[in-house]
Design a protein around this nucleic acid. Structure first.
Lengths: 185, 185
DNA sequence: GTCTATAAGGAGATAGAC
DNA sequence: GTCTATCTCCTTATAGAC
């Protein structure tokens, strides 16, 4: 896991907490996962978690804020790409490469599985706002409604790949890449 | 709301409960919505809810089971459609017409906002299974991996329309129809 | 950094009167 | 059908010892 800038003094416990929390939040949902459950799986007590994070929400914030920074960089770069098909494809490709490679995709999966939670979290609202910005860039300036819809769908197609993944012989990244590149943008 | 076969004897309270619950579940999530909140909005007490539903899960079950029946009918019909582009388009069109018209789309929206909940509910697992069946039919017999992916994405594109809807001048059904028909299946 | 102990509150669910 | 009252359980979060 690459999560934030864990203070180098700690033995990586903070990062381990985030990793376990992310897994449980994605599997069973944020609300259904208690701090007791996270602590137990780590072999510590609940109180230990509160040394590293000031609240349950704060665990999520750490995960999200990291992505928002990276997303802002991608958005800034995307604004300078040409507004043609090649430019849009380049944007989508970088999006997939950055946010769905390695363990990064775990965070994205968490986002999709916990939409209602993110709605009530400040970090989640910011994330959503960035996604809409990216869709706007893909749609181009003064888009026809149909172009705006298509741009948003292209972005979403990447995310919906989890639903599509069932054949064990096709690995996930391969399928995600295929899904995004097939989309006409 | 058209929810199940409410015993005609009651004054529709059961249906009103489902309508309010559906709205709150979709807005803030299933876990975050308490029975107290539902009861308060209806002007009754928690205990009254338990006369109509044996548990909180049971409220969701009523909503889901209704869709599963309709989905099973659609699946049976879809199996008899030709395996060409026109047939696939016909299937998608009926899917959109049946599940995204009127208030039906509220239930679909609830599904997307509460994926983790549905994972742990028997009714939700059945629903997911039906969706995969439908994707298989769209993909055709012995599909290449790429065809399977494309079929699943086409289905999902319909559902992702909520993300795409931002322009208030384009109404939702119009956009959903457009989204599904634009998709190459 | 991690522990024990506990506070404070809300959740789902039930019993029984009306 | 709906109410009041209550039970039981589990949650997030804090205080303070080690």
């Amino acid at each position: 896991m690459t999560v934030g800038t864990a203070s180098a003094s700690t033995g990586g416990t903070r990062t381990r907490i985030q990793a376990v929390a992310l897994e449980l939040f994605t599997e069973q949902g944020y609300e259904k996962t208690s701090l007791r459950e996270i602590a137990e799986r780590l072999g510590v007590t609940k109180a230990a978690l509160y040394y590293h994070f000031k609240s349950k929400d704060d665990i999520v914030n750490g995960l999200v804020m990291d992505r928002i920074e990276r997303l802002d960089q991608l958005i800034a770069w995307a604004r300078e790409q040409p507004c043609d098909a090649a430019g849009r494809r380049a944007i989508l490709t970088r999006y997939v490469d950055e946010f769905f490679a390695d363990e990064h995709h775990l965070v994205m999966h968490f986002f999709e599985q916990n939409q209602t939670v993110l709605k009530s979290l400040a970090a989640g609202q910011q994330m959503r706002q960035r996604m809409l910005q990216l869709a706007d860039i893909l749609a181009g300036p003064d888009p026809a409604p149909i172009a705006a819809t298509r741009a948003a769908l292209a972005l979403f197609a990447v995310h919906s790949s989890w639903f599509a993944v069932r054949n064990p012989h096709v690995d996930r990244t391969e399928q995600i890449g295929r899904a995004s590149c097939r989309e006409r943008v």
